[in-house]
Design a protein around this nucleic acid. Sequence first.
DNA 1: TGACCGACGTACCATCGGTACGTCAAGCGG
DNA 2: CCGCTTGACGTACCGATGGTACGTCGGTCA
Lengths: 194, 194
Amino acid sequence: MAGVRIEQRERTRRALVEQARALFATRGYGDVGLAEIVRAAGVTKGALYHQFEGKADLFRVVLAEVAAEVADAVVAAAEAQGDDPWAQFTAGSRAFLEASTDPAVARIALVDGPAVLGWTEWRAVDEATSGRHLVEALGTLVARGVLAPRPVAPLAHLLGGAMNEAALWLAVTDEPDALERVWGELLAMMEALR
Amino acid sequence: MAGVRIEQRERTRRALVEQARALFATRGYGDVGLAEIVRAAGVTKGALYHQFEGKADLFRVVLAEVAAEVADAVVAAAEAQGDDPWAQFTAGSRAFLEASTDPAVARIALVDGPAVLGWTEWRAVDEATSGRHLVEALGTLVARGVLAPRPVAPLAHLLGGAMNEAALWLAVTDEPDALERVWGELLAMMEALR
DNA sequence: TGACCGACGTACCATCGGTACGTCAAGCGG
DNA sequence: CCGCTTGACGTACCGATGGTACGTCGGTCA
């Protein structure tokens, strides 16, 4: 059978996640109540607490979705380059920067994420999505001799933090050429490591 | 006429800020209620709302205090060097990293700060404290020809973000030599800009 | 077909941040 | 020294919030 149960289940989960994502993105986790979320999704609090463990758990799912989309953009950009690891690295970084510049992404993934889930759990989500690709890219660069041998993990933290902060700045600034200026500096910073 | 009024005023403000800071540092802004804060400070909610505009305003004062202390540590470390601008730059950066590695500082200044006040206002606090010194240090490095002429603002964002992320990692990790490893990578990153 | 279970709505609760208002003493002009 | 003002604070209370208990109804399956 088609499974009316799981179909219904998935429909309410999708509605809750989508509406919660839209509300969290525009007004932030703290300023959005469950009543508003369930009203927008067309269900009740009973449905929400049946599908999720609570407000924070719903946010966790939203964050995972956002992070996965960003990671997909990074992978797509990297794969669009040939098999030049340096080009893949820079293209992936630029894709991350552009994707995270979306205010909705920045708000959920970079501002509320660490505060709601705690930094450690937030870091685990990042490590499972975009962060992993950054570590892998740096690893292959070292393995191929493009980068001098060095500990990859700390460098990934530094570069990731730099890109996160840059994305947050780009998300709120209104200078039209800000992205290119930041990207220029970031690229120079990465080139200097070569 | 010592001013019993302003003395009393300052005493309750100090008590509230100190207790709030301790509680926010250990359990985070969201998990600490006003009732607990005023109980620890030995006053009531009436006193809190007489001295502050609300919970977020109290947090704002706590954050300003923490940020000022970090900035003081940065300035002290930089001034301990002679008038070598590069030594001042690196010493200040290292002092920032060490100060922000304190879990209490990291939690308040780096995790909850942006979420509670919003990223823009949080950035303004940083810009008024540690961030300002970073921009100034980079400015003099460019002016003295130590660094090639380049836009300072984006670079400050990138370096500041890198150090923030590094501090957060150091605040939760238990590797004993993590600080030296991260510092080594950060120093290499900064040296590469020379 | 009847027992079971997953999905969900309703009613309710404790607690939270925030407000209104009363009280009391310090300050201050006369 | 007196009386009025005002700042500092406590008490009682409010609406809203996240979370829970429980009832119901329809799909599922032996």
